[in-house]
């Protein structure tokens, strides 16, 4: 693929849709949002400049603290559980021989379910009195909590429900596992390494790049969790948001401030604060990965 005259012009022609989209839907809005965060704007009257007022309010707003706590609580439980479960399921699929394809399909079907349908289903499945999950716990002699009404159990319930979507991560890991060179296992077996040692010294380093990628992507997504919790507990004109505060995730609060209260300036400040939180957490993860991720000596 040698560089030719005219190539540069042609390249920009092919890239132009993306450049336009980047300016109009990413870079432009981000600058616009930074400006908005310094204003009071309700879409009826023109925006008025208020300096750092919105950021000051954000720091003292108790709802922001609650929303941030809820979001971090969810993320800290959801991401590690998702990764470990996905890895366990992928390892099982890898050993299942011909049945593997069937089980892969079964694991993936929940990923295809629309989140609103999921919300409706799990409001009933998690129901403290009649739900199937507590019925199952009852078989083993446990009395399950009121997952959908007890403020202490709403977030664990949402985490449990989120694990139902583990299928896509499991499929990613299954592919990563099949790329680990099999000779390494042969060699380890000859050296008498136990399965646990093989997993720890061959499998984990072999797929650490993929684990790293899924941790980062799922953390970013999890810090923006919205749809299931919103569909289950918010936006219902018939009932007050009675479980409101224990399921109030950060983006739900942002959404309410922007589109229910029409506080566009404050919502923009909330968005930038979230951006900073996500950037810091991602940066920490990237730093940690330098010690934990194994890269093959030859670049692919």
């Amino acid at each position: 693929m040698a560089r030719q005259r005219g190539d540069t012009r042609a390249a920009w022609m092919f890239l132009s849709p993306w450049i336009a989209g980047f300016l109009v839907f990413t870079a432009g809005p981000m600058i616009f949002s930074l400006f908005l965060s310094l204003t009071r704007y309700d879409m009826l009257k023109p925006a008025t400049f208020v300096g750092l007022d919105n950021y000051q309010e954000l720091v003292t707003d108790p709802k922001v603290g609650i929303a941030l706590y809820n979001t971090l609580f969810f993320t800290v439980l959801h991401v590690p559980l998702l990764i470990v479960l996905a890895l366990a399921l992928a390892s099982l699929l890898r050993r299942a021989g011909r049945a593997s394809g069937f089980f892969r399909t079964v694991l993936y079907l929940p990923v295809m379910t629309p989140p609103v349908a999921l919300a409706a289903m799990f409001l009933l499945l998690l129901n403290g009195q009649t739900g199937a999950i507590n019925e199952l716990l009852g078989w083993f002699g446990f009395t399950g909590p009121n997952w959908t009404t007890d403020p202490a159990w709403i977030k664990p319930g949402l985490v449990l429900m989120s694990l139902w979507g583990v299928g896509s991560t499991a499929v990613i890991y299954l592919a990563a596992l099949s790329r680990v060179p099999q000779e390494l296992y042969e060699a380890a077996r000859l050296d008498g390494a136990s399965s646990w040692k093989q997993f720890w010294h061959i499998t984990l380093p072999g797929i650490s790049g993929t684990i790293y990628f899924t941790v980062i992507v799922n953390t970013i997504a999890s810090l923006q969790t919205f749809t299931e919790a919103y569909a289950m507990f918010f936006g219902n004109s018939e009932v007050a948001d009675n479980q409101g505060d224990s399921a109030l995730f950060y983006v739900i609060y942002l959404f309410q401030q922007a589109f229910s209260s029409l506080r566009m300036g404050y919502a923009s400040a909330l968005a930038w604060a979230l951006f900073v939180v996500i950037a810091v957490i991602t940066a920490v993860q990237v730093r940690a990965s330098r010690r934990l991720v194994y890269y093959e000596s030859e670049p692919r």
Binding site: F22, S33, L223, A258, M264
Partner: peptide
């Protein structure tokens, strides 16, 4: 830059993009 936008939280552009369409 393309890959970086993949990591960009969508929540950040939610409000300004709405105002653009408005």
């Amino acid at each position: 830059l393309v890959l970086a936008t993949m990591m960009l939280p969508g929540a950040v552009t939610m409000v300004p993009v709405y105002l653009e369409w408005h």
